[in-house]
Amino acid sequence: MNPEERRDERKASRESGPNGEASSMTETTRGATDRRTEPNADAVSNPPESYACRVCGRAFPESRLLVLHRGVRHANALTDGEKEAYVEAYREEEAELHSFRIRALAVLVVLYFGVLFLYIGFAG
C-alpha cells in the first residue's frame, strides 16, 4: 500500500483544481506541455519494448516503471486493475529497497571502519 504518495497526488490535485477529474485533466495538460517529445518519439521508434502512459504520453522501457509512474503521478486516474498492479509493484520495490538498505548499511560500516583504521595507521 502506498498511502503517502496517494496523499501527495491528492494534495497536488487539490492545489491544481477544484475537483478530481478536472484536476487530473489539468495535470495532464501541464505534463504534456513541459515534457520533451523525445520519449514519445522513442515510443514510436521502438514499439516492442516501450510502454506509454495513457494519461500523459511519457514512455517507459519497462511495464513495471509505467505501473509505478501511473501510481505516483496519476493516482486520481487509476482503474481498479491499475491500482492493484501499482500496489503489487510498490510492494516488490519495497522488498528491493530493503535489500538495498542492508547493502548501503554494509558500505557505511566499511567506510566508517576503513576511515577509522586509516586514521589509526597514518595519523599520529
Partner: peptide, 19 residues
C-alpha cells in the same frame, strides 16, 4: 570525500516520497 559519499548513502535511506 568520504563524508559526502556517506551522506549520500544516508540520504538514500530516506525513501518516503511524501517526506
Amino acid at each position: 570525500g568520504v563524508t559526502i559519499g556517506a551522506s549520500a548513502l544516508l540520504a538514500s535511506f530516506v525513501t518516503d516520497r511524501r517526506f
